[in-house]
């Protein structure tokens, strides 16, 4: 496994959000993370990338524990987290937004990496001198994903890249996910749109109340009904 999460416990202050989470992502696969608002998906991503310090358990990426490291160290190791809500820097141009993502890279490589990332999104490449704030929500989301790609991640974590986007744009973003997988990048995807995600993912985890309640391959035949019951209760694991 490229990423291994073992018995992870995390939360905000006194509020425990994640309870004994076990999951993993292999190199080159697309894994979807599903669950309700408040189930702990975003918290899990933040804990993995080091944005949220966690308590006990362990996160191992490419053979090294990420305990105590922040997002900067994770990104250097090749684990990039694109946070929810397409939070690009609205006062700065598209090119500058990407340049910021390349902050840690050697000076000479920056522009090549930016062009590489922009190649995935011709629609924002055309607007490279526009300010981030002037982009539409969908374009901002593409920019946010492009920021992640500048680092040439081995594992890219996307938190709800489809939120607030029109169906066409959602397909556009998910198409890039497929494209990345074809090039060997592993992806951990948090999504609400179950059907669309299942179409691009290899495996799926469902979270409820901070616990993994379902882990399955996407080609298992009864997956949909198992998901439905995971969402509507009755089979939610209780202890």
């Amino acid at each position: 496994m490229l990423l291994d999460v073992n018995a992870l416990e995390a939360g905000y202050g006194k509020i425990g959000v994640l309870h004994h989470v076990e999951m993993g992502v292999a190199a080159g696969e697309v894994v979807a993370l599903l669950g309700h608002n408040g189930a702990g998906k975003t918290t899990l991503l933040r804990a993995i990338s080091g944005l949220l310090p966690w308590g006990s358990g362990d996160v191992v990426f490419a053979g090294h524990s990420l305990k105590g490291s922040g997002p900067r160290e994770s990104a250097r190791a090749g684990l990039v987290h694109v946070i929810e809500g397409h939070r690009v820097f609205t006062q700065q141009t598209v090119a500058d937004n990407l340049l910021l993502a390349a902050y840690d890279l050697p000076r000479g490589e920056r522009s090549a990496r930016i062009e590489e990332a922009l190649a995935f999104f011709p629609e924002i490449a055309a607007k490279r001198h526009d300010r981030g704030g002037s982009l539409s929500g969908g374009q901002q989301q593409m920019l946010a994903v492009a920021q992640g790609l500048v680092r040439r991640p081995r594992l890219l974590m996307l938190d709800e890249p489809s939120a607030g986007l029109s169906p066409v744009l959602v397909d556009r973003v998910l198409a890039v996910v497929s494209q990345l997988r074809a090039e060997g990048t592993a992806i951990l995807l948090v999504e609400q749109l179950v059907e669309k995600v299942l179409a691009v993912a290899d495996r799926v985890y469902a979270l409820a109340q901070g616990r993994v309640v379902l882990s399955a391959r996407c080609d298992e035949p009864d997956l949909r009904s198992r998901l439905e019951s995971a969402y509507f209760g009755s089979t939610i694991a209780r202890d």
């Binding site: 999504e191 609400q192 749109l193 179950v194 059907e195 669309k196 995600v197 949909r224 998901l227 439905e228 969402y231 509507f232």
Partner: peptide, 8 residues
């Protein structure tokens, strides 16, 4: 409702 939840 079911599809809104599961994103049809």
């Amino acid at each position: 409702v079911v599809s809104a939840y599961l994103g049809g």
